[in-house]
Amino acid sequence: MTGSQHRFASLHDVELATLAATGERRAFGELVRRHGSAVRGLLRRMGAAPAEADDTAQDAFLAAFEGIAEYRGEGAFQGWVKRIAARQYLRRLQRERRLADLAVAAEEGEPDVSDPDTAGRIDLDGALKALTAPERLCVSMCYGAGLSHAEAAEALNLPLGTVKSHVKRGLEKLRARLAPPDGALEGRQGNG
C-alpha cells in the first residue's frame, strides 16, 4: 500500500468523492478499490461475460469520475456507481445491437438448470443461471442496481408490463432455487 493509498483508506466514501471532485485521482482510485468488485459482480450477474464486465466497469468508473460533482452523498456511492454501470452496460448492448435480441430471447433462451447447490450454500450467481437473459437483466437491474421497474423499463426500452413480468418470473425461479424449504433465507452465508 502506497502512502496516498494509506492516507485515503481511512476516509469515508463521501470525503473521497469530494476530493475526487477537486481532481484528486488517487482518492477516486480508493473508491475503485472499495467498490470495484461490487460493480464487476453486478455486471456479470446482469449477464456480461467476464472481460466485457470488466471493460464496462472501467468505463463506468471513468464516467463516474467525470460526473463525480453530481454525487452529493445523499445515497451510497456504491449504489450510485452501480446504476451508472448498469446503464453503461445497456448502452453497450444497444450499440452492439444486442439489446433487442436479448429482449426477444425471453422464451427462446435455454437457461442453465443444473442442480442447485447441494451443500445448501446460497449461491446467487448459480441461481441466476436458471433465469433467461431478459429475466436476469431485469432482476439484476432492479435488485442489484437499485433501479425501479419504471427506470429499468426506460433503460431497456421495454414496456413497463414486460419488465414487471420478467422480474416476476425471475423472482419465482430464484425463490425456487434460493429459498430453503423452511423459508428462512436470512442468516445464510455467501453467494459465491
Binding site: 485521482r25 482510485g29 464487476r40 450467481d125
Partner: peptide, 30 residues
C-alpha cells in the same frame, strides 16, 4: 422478506483476486 434478502445477496460483492490490478487499470486510464 424474500425481496429484501435478495437485495442483501446482490449487495454482497463477490471476491476478485485481481481487484488491485483492476483499480490500477482505472487509475492508469484516469
Amino acid at each position: 422478506d424474500f425481496e429484501r434478502s435478495l437485495e442483501r445477496l446482490f449487495a454482497e460483492a463477490p471476491y476478485f483476486s485481481d481487484g488491485e490490478a483492476f483499480a490500477q487499470k482505472v487509475e492508469g486510464r484516469l
